[in-house]
């Protein structure tokens, strides 16, 4: 399986709304190169936009690390959003539809989770937050939101 180039892992800063736009652009480009379909790209970039904004607004800025995944012939992208912000006190509550501490509609985290195939949060009060998601460029069926 040939890829256009070996990207390995790249890091992008998230410190302003210009950075948000840049991150969205980079992820869309990477996803397109890996063979994501248009709907898959749109879902992933939308999830990325939610999570990057989360890092910016709630985490006070941070970074995202983008890694190309190979699982046999299937290619994917893993994105890890990291900040050193106040952390999430109640992850279950933060994952609830409609829950918001900011200016959005409270669909950010829960909505983003529905748009990707893998989703994980590592956070503790005062200890920052890392949210990791992965999506695969494939028409093959993937288990959706397995119970954890």
């Amino acid at each position: 399986m040939q890829t256009s180039h070996d990207t390995g892992t790249i890091r992008l800063p998230i410190g302003s709304d210009t950075d948000l736009a840049w991150v969205r652009q980079q992820v869309r480009q990477a996803a397109a190169e890996l063979g994501f379909g248009l709907v898959q790209q749109t879902k992933l970039v939308t999830a990325v936009s939610e999570l990057a904004r989360n890092t910016l607004i709630h985490g006070g800025g941070g970074q995202v690390e983008m890694t190309v995944l190979h699982q046999g012939p299937v290619l994917g992208l893993r994105l890890a959003f990291t900040d050193d912000g106040p952390g999430i006190r109640d992850i279950e509550q933060a994952m609830t539809d409609g829950y918001t501490t900011g200016s959005g509609l409270g669909m950010g985290l829960s909505g983003a989770k529905r748009l990707v195939q893998e989703f994980g949060i590592d956070s503790r009060p005062g200890g920052g937050t890392t949210i990791t998601v992965a999506a695969w460029a494939t028409g093959l069926p993937h288990p959706r939101a397995e119970d954890g």
């Binding site: 248009l38 709907v39 749109t42 879902k43 539809d97 509609l105 669909m107 909505g111 529905r114 748009l115």
Partner: peptide, 14 residues
């Protein structure tokens, strides 16, 4: 609205 955007918005819950 583009079809891919509509599909994504519904899944997002918006």
């Amino acid at each position: 609205m583009r079809p891919a955007v509509a599909i994504t918005l519904v899944e997002l819950g918006l």
